[in-house]
Design a protein around this nucleic acid. Structure first.
Lengths: 120, 120
DNA sequence: CTTGAATCTGACATCAATGTGAGGTCCTAC
DNA sequence: GTAGGACCTCACATTGATGTCAGATTCAAG
């Protein structure tokens, strides 16, 4: 069991964000009699998962749906995704694909500007 | 000379955004005696340029610096970019590259989740 | 002129995760 | 038991382009 400071240090995620994750139901925390959070070892992996999913642009709501399907190091039985969740994830994947294409296009625009502005 | 409604229609950009662009110094507008904006034909191309640059993730401040270097259909003499502007643009380009790489990584994470959640 | 559509300004809302600060409580090593 | 570091909650700020609404004014066509 570790407290929030250690978890923050080990994951390089701010305490503020960890509290937010708990508030959003992404992270379980026991409480001491005094009200301080206590996290299991597996919380480290979980926070890393959360960060990955945030980086993928998923909302905290979607992450809350996805997390039960991800196998943590605590080896809890991974829940099976509902068809609608899979659909959501496929949609997110398509969004990422589209975003990549858009960025590639933006890069091309930028290259034109840079070429016109610097070299010529 | 066209008014804001027509420009909005022809560029598919909201009137609100066009006013914002003018406020940020990205778009020139004459005013009628009554205070209504009047835009030149070239504003259509300019707004399209602005949208491209916004899509590339540039801030309105940077766009304001870049626009004078882009040749509009009005054929105004394109200003020469300062070295620091070119540096900024190269930085933005690098940011886009990094973002694309990050998204590719996110897509991979998502693919893992999707595979684990759907197929197995 | 009159009327209705178009436009004006100004202000506040949004989205979402995170930063930040105040004021108070808990925990632990001494 | 006490000092001080760690932690608590609550609340407001941030970011920035855009949405939206209200109330007032202008424009253009009849």
């Amino acid at each position: 069991m570790m407290r929030i400071g250690e978890l923050a240090r080990r994951t390089a995620v701010s305490e503020r964000s960890l509290r937010y994750y708990e508030e959003q139901g992404l992270l379980d925390a026991h409480r001491t009699s005094g009200g301080h959070r206590e996290f299991a070892e597996s919380a480290v992996d979980r926070v890393i998962h959360i960060q990955e999913l945030f980086a993928a642009g998923l909302s905290s709501r979607t992450i809350a749906d996805v997390l039960p399907c991800m196998r943590d190091s605590d080896g809890g039985p991974a829940a099976v995704a509902t068809p609608s969740l899979v659909e959501t994830l496929l949609g997110e994947r398509a969004r990422i694909e589209a975003r990549i294409a858009q960025l590639a296009s933006s890069r091309a625009v930028l290259d034109e500007v840079i070429e016109a502005a610097s070299g010529k």
